[in-house]
Nucleic acid binder design. Structure first.
Length: 762
DNA sequence: TCTCGAACTTAGAAGGCGTCAT
DNA sequence: ATGACGCCTTCTAAGTTCGAGA
């Protein structure tokens, strides 16, 4: 089992965890509605535990725009009566390095984890030093000149590497897979930013030039034959009103448009776009008939699909042109790919889960909304004719190129670089290095939080229990959220009493905590976890005489928690635990599951299973693909067919053998036909073998797919698993990296592919 | 000390697109 | 050639974290 944590073990019923989480969203709706209804009570309730003033939340409904101003009155933080006294945690300095690890027996830690290891020991990679120092504390201010000196040493010829990365076959990984139809020229050396010095002065770049964003195409009015009807009567809409109507019409098939909140929000915002006549006429969304519009768009989509090859090609070329022109920037002498160079088009806001703002109009972004960030000495992007940027600034302490403020939440959106870029890659690498540093002190930390479960101070106990959950269950930190602005979701620190059930005994296990809550993206987290007695008792205490709507950890929030973590280890925050536990789990599972005798598909199944263990730990779910059942059937059919084929092949083989035998018995007078028959037998043998291999492949595929029904592997692969673990595994077992990472992923993880050897240890 | 906003990472869904079987 | 299917890319929402400033 995963030696470190036995995450999988810790779930009594891990299998059930996934089964119904999507289906049960409805149940959640009720629950949440209840939660809302009780909000006021909650506020009152809270003040029982806190000394904050009661505030009236009932009328804070939709004051949209003004929300920033509104916030003043509602300081949730206060509600919680956080103890601010920063206590010396004297214990912190000298952790008693207890032998026993913090967990009940299933959690015996098996990984070779020596606390005494000097930080340098692991540093086989020269850059790591930098990372360990973190870049927040400039020790050595690097000047331009420093940097250019460096460049003379290393970069020189790479300087000119100002070509798109798009193909860049790095000698390392690439070569095989995607090469199929590629002209395969451009042997072009890829820039290995990971072999260069990093900035240590907090600047993110010295030079940045780009062409600005691509705006959404202007609205094209509907042909006059496509009509809108109100109350059965045709009505010609003004341009603005029509545009917004089309947003709705395009979504008609989506269940969003049946939801009350969605319709209400939409209608309200739609009316704002209407002329006064329209406004006075159109007063009831139910009387609006968008059917013709909807049909029209469907027809358009269809037409797009059936377009001729040339037309499609043309579109593609146009796209490519845009990409080439706007999709890249120049940052510090290198041409880098931009992630999202297109501005989000206007439309209707689609929140996740039970979002109070779903259906609101996301307005069109104009040049006047845009802030450009680039070098002072670069060629500034030019706004479309007749328009101006909101601002052009030159802030090299940030990584974004373009920003604007979005109108739904009032938050800022950015255009940034692709994950393959230096600036993202460095950060990613650094993230894993931090997680590896945690590995070195995690036992110490565990010992301490177990100790803290006994503290006489409530806030410390709460902190310790929360941290235990974050560590053991890989929960997210759980910031407070502004009520009424977003869906009601929680993370660790914001768990409420209603999200936990305590079972002194359940299914033959003691002290079981049942979690049931909606987390990020309103994905349900459901898990039954046996915990240590002390944790259990603490939870009982935290929850006693509280209402379901009250916070479990009323003396804790993410900032308190993170402040504490920061003291335990430089750069440590709650999310580092997720990264650490995900990566260490992968490493362990790979060790456990891979056997070198397996063939490649079997090894890859092992990899996927290891990956899956992590995805389960992190609760990365997906809706089962719509076509799941069918595709499963197809696959099964293939398997059956293959089986038939095999038995046929076996029969053939048998008869060939028989023929050969007869021939031999006949005294081998006719050498020739004997040879022929021997050849035939060999061929048949091969055929059987081949078919068997194919069958196994199919079966493996079926297993893999079945196990993956509701689990999303991508997120952990992309964000939580140190790619060097996978690279090392590939190298160790001689698996082509392409089997694990697709092209995009290889680009993102180029640094890891280049630097990790088969012996890399996370 | 607390709040708030800025910046950046993490997330699942949707839709595009290439591939494969027919 | 066609259509089904599944992988990949794009999209943008929803988190976390940090630090400025009141």
């Amino acid at each position: 089992m995963s030696g470190d944590h036995s995450h999988n073990d810790s779930q009594i019923d891990s299998g059930s965890r996934y089964n119904d989480s999507h289906k049960h969203k409805d149940k959640y709706k009720d629950k949440e509605q209840k939660h809302k209804d009780h909000k006021k009570d909650k506020e009152r309730e809270k003040s029982k535990y806190s000394n904050s003033e009661h505030r009236d939340s009932s009328d804070k409904k939709h004051k949209e725009k003004e929300r920033q101003k509104l916030k003043d009155g509602s300081d949730k933080q206060k509600d919680k009566q956080k103890e601010k006294r920063k206590e010396e945690r004297s214990s912190n300095g000298k952790p008693k390095k207890e032998k026993e690890n913090g967990f009940a027996s299933p959690h015996i830690k098996s990984e070779p984890d020596d606390f005494y290891q000097s930080p340098k020991l692991e540093k086989s990679l020269k850059r790591e030093r930098d990372f360990d120092d973190g870049d927040f504390k400039p020790k050595k201010i690097k000047t331009e000149d420093d940097r250019s000196e460096k460049k003379t040493k290393k970069r020189k010829q790479e300087e000119e590497d100002i070509k798109p990365k798009k193909k860049g076959n790095n000698k390392k990984g690439e070569v095989a897979t995607d090469g199929k139809k590629k002209p395969k020229k451009e042997p072009e050396e890829k820039w290995k930013w990971w072999e260069e010095e990093r900035y240590t002065d907090g600047s993110k770049w010295k030079f940045l030039e780009h062409k600005g964003p691509v705006f959404a195409p202007p609205y094209e009015p509907l042909p006059s034959k496509v009509k809108f009807y109100y109350d059965g009567k045709h009505m010609k809409l003004s341009n603005n009103a029509e545009e917004v109507a089309t947003f709705f019409a395009k979504m008609l098939d989506h269940e969003y448009t049946t939801k009350d909140v969605f319709r209400k929000n939409f209608f309200k915002d739609w009316r704002k776009e209407m002329t006064s006549e329209e406004k006075s006429k159109i007063t009831d969304l139910n009387k609006c008939d968008f059917a013709e519009m909807s049909e029209y768009f469907k027809a358009q989509a269809e037409a797009r699909k059936t377009k001729t090859k040339e037309d499609k090609l043309k579109l593609k070329e146009e796209n490519e042109r845009l990409l080439q022109e706007y999709g890249f920037c120049i940052m510090d002498n290198h041409k880098e790919r931009i992630a999202n160079f297109r501005i989000e088009p206007p439309g209707l806001f689609r929140g996740r889960g039970d979002h109070p703002k779903m259906g609101m109009l996301k307005r069109r972004i104009r040049p006047e909304d845009i802030i450009i960030n680039c070098s002072r000495d670069s060629k500034y992007p030019t706004p479309p004719p007749g328009t101006k940027w909101k601002e052009v600034r030159h802030d090299n302490k940030v990584t974004w190129l373009v920003s604007w403020t979005e109108n739904i939440q009032g938050s800022i959106k950015y255009i940034m670089l692709n994950p393959s870029s230096r600036i993202k890659g460095e950060k990613d690498w650094q993230k894993y290095e931090t997680a590896r540093r945690l590995k070195k002190c995690v036992e110490k930390i565990r010992t301490q939080y177990r100790e803290d479960w006994k503290s006489k101070e409530m806030r410390i106990r709460q902190r310790a229990v929360a941290l235990y959950f974050i560590d053991k269950l890989a929960l997210r930190a759980g910031n407070e959220k502004e009520e009424g602005e977003t869906a009601d979701t929680v993370g660790c620190c914001s768990l409420r009493v209603e999200h936990l059930s305590l079972h002194p005994e359940m299914d033959g296990q003691e002290f079981v905590v049942e979690f049931d809550f909606l987390g990020k993206d309103s994905i349900r987290y459901y898990n039954k976890v046996p915990v240590e007695k002390r944790v259990f008792k603490n939870l009982q205490l935290f929850m006693e005489s509280k209402e379901p709507e009250d916070d479990v950890f009323d003396r804790l929030n993410t900032s308190i928690l993170n402040k504490h973590l920061q003291e335990l280890m430089d750069g440590l925050t709650a999310k580092v635990f997720r990264t650490y536990n995900a990566s260490i789990t992968l490493q362990q599972q790979l060790k456990e599951l891979t056997s070198s005798e397996d063939n490649v598909p079997a090894k890859i199944l092992s990899y996927n299973r290891a990956n899956r263990a992590v995805a389960i730990l992190c609760n990365h779910q997906r809706a089962p693909p719509k076509t799941f059942e069918k595709s499963m059937q197809n696959l099964q059919a293939k398997i059956d067919a293959k089986k038939d084929q095999i038995s046929d092949a076996r029969r053939d083989l048998k008869s060939a053998k028989a023929d050969l035998k007869v021939c031999k018995d006949e005294k081998s007078k006719r050498q020739v036909s004997k040879y022929l028959l021997e050849g035939a037998v060999e061929a048949k043998k091969k055929a059987v073998q081949r078919a068997e291999e194919q069958l196994m492949k199919l079966e493996v595929q079926a297993t893999d797919r079945e196990e993956n029904k509701q689990i999303a592997l991508g997120t952990s692969k992309l964000n939580y698993l140190d790619p060097r673990i996978s690279v090392a595994w590939c190298k160790k077992y001689d698996i082509p990296i392409e089997k694990i990472y697709n092209k995009t992923q290889r680009e993102k993880f180029a640094w890891a592919i280049d630097m990790a050897g088969k012996d890399f240890e996370f």
